[in-house]
Amino acid sequence: MLTVWGRANSLNVQAVMWTIAELGLTHQRHDIGHVHGGNKTSEYLAMNPNGLVPTVRDGDGVPMWESAAIVRYLAAAYGDDKFWPRDPAARVQLDMWAEWIKTSFVPTFSGQVFRPLVQQGSTPLPPEQLKAATEAVKPLALMLDRRLGDGPYLAGSDLSFADMIIGNPLYRYYTLDFDRAATPSLDAYYAQLTARPHYREHVMVSYESLRTRP
C-alpha cells in the first residue's frame, strides 16, 4: 500500500493523488503541511530533508519526494504502455512538456498571478502589476494550446503520466479571475479533465484556505 504525507490542497500533492487514483492504487494519505504542520519534525525530515510535501512510501520502500518524480515512479511501476510509454523516444515527447509545465508555466502563473491574487491579503495588486503578470502567462498558455491541438489529451486519445503534471495546475488557472489568452484547444483539454471523476476529487480542491486574510 502507498502512504502519502501531504495536504489535499497542495498543488504538488494533488498531482500525486490524481495519479494514484487513475492507476487504482491502494493508499492512505495523512494531512501534513501548512495549517496541519508536521513537516518540520525530525521524523518527517528524516524521510524528506526538504521539509515540503508530498512524501510517498510504497510499502516498505524508501520514501520518495518531489511530486513529478513520484508521478513518474508510479507511472513506470504501475502504468500500462499508454500511461507510461516504454519506448523512450515516444515517452520523451510527453515528458518534455511535463518538465516545461513545471519549469515555465507554473512558476510564471503561480509566482506572478496566483500567489499575489490569492495571498495578497487586504492589499490590492496594482493594476499595472496584474496586467504585466497576465501578459507573461498568455504566451505560455498559447504554446500549450498549440501543442494540444485536437487532443483530447497530450498523447492524443490516451491519458498519460504527463497529463497528471500538465493538467494539475489548470484548475487554479481556470478558476482564478484574471485575463486569459484565447485558447480553444486548452479550454477543451480542461473540459475533458473536469469530466474525469478522479480529477474532480483530487485536483478540483478549494484553495480558499490558502488566502491571506486581512
Rank of each mutant, 00 (worst) to 15 (best):
residue 1 M to V: 15
residue 5 W to N: 06
residue 8 A to P: 06
residue 9 N to D: 15
residue 13 V to I: 07
residue 15 A to M: 02
residue 16 V to E: 13
residue 18 W to Q: 07
residue 19 T to Q: 09
residue 21 A to Q: 03
residue 24 G to K: 05
residue 25 L to H: 10
residue 25 L to W: 15
residue 28 Q to F: 01
residue 28 Q to N: 10
residue 29 R to F: 08
residue 29 R to I: 06
residue 31 D to H: 07
residue 33 G to A: 10
residue 36 H to V: 02
residue 36 H to E: 09
residue 37 G to D: 04
residue 38 G to P: 15
residue 41 T to I: 12
residue 42 S to I: 11
residue 43 E to L: 11
residue 43 E to K: 14
residue 45 L to N: 07
residue 47 M to S: 02
residue 47 M to V: 02
residue 49 P to C: 03
residue 50 N to G: 02
residue 53 V to K: 09
residue 54 P to S: 08
residue 55 T to G: 05
residue 55 T to E: 13
residue 55 T to W: 08
residue 56 V to A: 08
residue 57 R to A: 09
residue 62 V to R: 08
residue 65 W to F: 09
residue 65 W to R: 05
residue 67 S to R: 00
residue 68 A to F: 12
residue 69 A to W: 04
residue 72 R to H: 12
residue 73 Y to W: 00
residue 76 A to T: 00
residue 76 A to I: 01
residue 77 A to Q: 09
residue 77 A to V: 06
residue 78 Y to L: 10
residue 80 D to G: 15
residue 82 K to V: 01
residue 86 R to S: 07
residue 88 P to Y: 12
residue 88 P to T: 10
residue 89 A to F: 09
residue 89 A to I: 08
residue 93 Q to Y: 03
residue 93 Q to F: 00
residue 95 D to Y: 07
residue 97 W to C: 10
residue 97 W to S: 15
residue 97 W to L: 13
residue 98 A to T: 07
residue 98 A to R: 08
residue 99 E to T: 15
residue 101 I to N: 05
residue 103 T to N: 14
residue 104 S to D: 13
residue 106 V to N: 02
residue 106 V to G: 03
residue 108 T to D: 03
residue 109 F to Y: 09
residue 111 G to M: 12
residue 112 Q to T: 04
residue 112 Q to S: 11
residue 113 V to L: 07
residue 113 V to E: 01
residue 116 P to F: 07
residue 120 Q to R: 15
residue 120 Q to V: 14
residue 121 G to S: 08
residue 121 G to R: 05
residue 122 S to N: 12
residue 129 Q to D: 15
residue 138 K to L: 00
residue 142 L to A: 10
residue 145 D to G: 01
residue 146 R to E: 14
residue 148 L to S: 05
residue 148 L to T: 10
residue 148 L to E: 06
residue 150 D to W: 10
residue 152 P to C: 13
residue 157 S to Q: 14
residue 160 S to C: 03
residue 163 D to Q: 11
residue 166 I to K: 02
residue 167 G to N: 14
residue 167 G to E: 14
residue 172 R to V: 04
residue 172 R to W: 11
residue 175 T to L: 02
residue 176 L to R: 12
residue 177 D to L: 06
residue 179 D to E: 11
residue 180 R to D: 00
residue 182 A to E: 05
residue 183 T to C: 15
residue 183 T to N: 04
residue 184 P to G: 08
residue 185 S to H: 15
residue 189 Y to M: 03
residue 190 Y to H: 07
residue 191 A to F: 06
residue 191 A to V: 10
residue 192 Q to H: 09
residue 194 T to G: 06
residue 195 A to Q: 14
residue 195 A to V: 06
residue 198 H to V: 14
residue 198 H to A: 13
residue 199 Y to G: 05
residue 199 Y to Q: 05
residue 200 R to E: 11
residue 203 V to Q: 11
residue 204 M to C: 11
residue 204 M to K: 14
residue 204 M to Q: 13
residue 206 S to Y: 09
residue 207 Y to I: 15
residue 208 E to M: 01
residue 208 E to N: 09
residue 208 E to H: 09
